[in-house]
Amino acid sequence: MAVIVCHGLKGGAGITFAAAHLAMTLSEAGAEVTVLSVAQRDTLPLHFGLQPALTLPSLFAPAEDAVLASGINLRSHTKAVDDADFVPTLLDLGYFEAGPDRVMVIDVPASEFAFARRIIPHSSANLCVLNAAPDTLALLPQVLGDASAETIARTTFAINALDETRRLSRHSAAFIRELVGPRLIGRIRLDEAVPEAIAMLQPLARYAPSSAALADVRAIGAAMVPALETPGRPWVARGEIAAASSSRAA
């Protein structure tokens, strides 16, 4: 089972939103998908149109306790962040293997950055969700300074809740784009349909099928699919590698 880690620099960036919709995109592409939340305060069910009072079953709970939303298995494991055996256990169970058929998306709150750093080296891909805002930009040097070269090399970025009508937002997005280059695999426009869908207890795709944010986050999910078979470089499509190689040879 391939693992994709969704994480971020700062709370409120939309990490859970991205994780949920990444899972939906992969599921629609035919994968068997599990989403694992490790947050103590969990909003994951809301993005699937589920009731706020719902408590997700443990990762290790039996199948009859499973919560399935649109065919996606929603699980929780809040102890994962403090559990030194979490990665070895998952390795023993056959997780962290490449392949597009079975995928686990792990939703990691920004505050659990140490846990994210621990699991990223084992994952097929990881997505760092950012806001185009100055306080987020200010955290970039610290995060890049602390991260290993391997982690940086494996990280892809997405800008969430981008308000292109605001000058500072556009400038901040431009700065991120220039800084991370091809590692930025997309941006999700600010869209009031996202909180409205939560308030309506509906998945975004049902509440607002033409939502700009939905189209954007789906494009990001599609861009990550190659990572499932080619771990570590999700922005590199395998076909394009071959095409580029042959054109260089020519």
């Binding site: 970039l140 040097p141 890049l144 300074g145 991260a147 070269a149 940086i152 090399a153 784009r177 800084l179 991370v180 280059g181 091809p182 590692r183 930025l184 695999i185 997309g186 494009a219 990001i220 599609a222 861009a223 190659p226 470089r233 922005w235 590199v236 499509a237 394009e240 590698i241 580029a244």
Partner: peptide
């Protein structure tokens, strides 16, 4: 911020996925 650039130069040149518009 150099860290991200150093990784880029150390790794093989990536081919940008045109569909994402970077």
């Amino acid at each position: 911020l150099q860290a991200i650039d150093q990784v880029e130069t150390a790794a093989p040149e990536p081919v940008v996925n045109e569909t994402v518009g970077t």
